[in-house]
Design a protein around this nucleic acid. Structure first.
Lengths: 150, 150
DNA sequence: TGCATTTAATTGACATATCAATTATTATTG
DNA sequence: CAATAATAATTGATATGTCAATTAAATGCA
């Protein structure tokens, strides 16, 4: 815990946790009853209609078990409707309800404000660089030809 | 989900998740029965003897409830011993067991290899920059004079 | 000293992460 | 076509994250 190389992952964890807390706080304060993770999944479903859950899992960097439970929750909350895909009865067909669509609308400005605040003072160039550095870490730590599921 | 500003937090999440999975995989593969979170907390206890749990929570970016449960677990696992601080009976006194110390020793090379792999091709300058960018995000999203606990 | 306040830690409830096992359905192939 | 393999999703178990409520002890103050 002395040299920079040793703490860069703490800095990473700290940044993401700080952002998440901040963002969630503002969402809740705006009277919107949704978690950031639920929002992300809901948005992914909206943007990729008909996508099976295993694809959604990859899109939002989660595993299938989490997706199943989150969808369940959002069906209960009235954000989603789940039907069975008649072409492949193993799959489900997910659609946003009116409520789900409305939530996405009202949350959008909050999300944008959160991002702008979080990234305030970071220039376009710096964002490009940050994206590149993080992507390299991802590449360096991605499992290749292993049967490890992900 | 189009512009860079919109996806930087996905890149962030992806990097941290990728690293965590990779690191945990290697630890488990080395036959070491500890999670990354437990390791971090164990190390924090070792490096800050006598520190109360609320301080530990800040150090490892977690909340007190998580710390309580993780300590409980590590006591059960035989990594830690918990005693009551006689100066202030609300606090506990945490000490690593022989097993706890041994774990930290055997895990150290694995941790270092993980970091080196993850940060491969990132120069010293880039690490400094990454640290700076992430710290700025943290600053931008840190709650100031609010009574929000953290 | 006595009571209210603060503080440290725990506990409960629920959301999410991860892994393993299971179920239902579809695809393969002998 | 029947047995087997592969795939999509669910479920169970356990770890962690977050918030709220509670407990126990210490502190402040009248």
């Amino acid at each position: 815990m002395e040299k920079l190389e040793d703490i860069i992952f703490y800095t990473l964890e700290r940044a993401i946790k700080s952002y998440r807390q901040y963002a969630q706080h503002n969402i809740t304060a705006a009277g919107i009853d949704i978690t950031i993770d639920q929002w992300l999944l809901l948005k992914a479903i909206q943007e990729n209609p008909g996508t099976p859950q295993n694809e959604l899992a990859k899109t939002v960097f989660k595993d299938m078990a989490s997706i199943t439970r989150m969808i369940e929750l959002m069906v209960t909350k009235g954000f989603l409707i789940r039907n069975i895909n008649s072409n492949d009865r193993r799959r489900s067909l997910l659609d946003l309800t009116e409520t789900g669509l409305l939530i996405l609308e009202v949350i959008q400005p909050v999300i944008e404000t959160n991002r702008n605040t979080a990234l305030d003072t970071l220039s376009k160039d710096e964002l490009v660089l940050l994206d590149d550095l993080l992507s390299r870490i991802t590449r360096n730590t991605s499992f290749k030809a292993e049967r490890s599921g992900n």
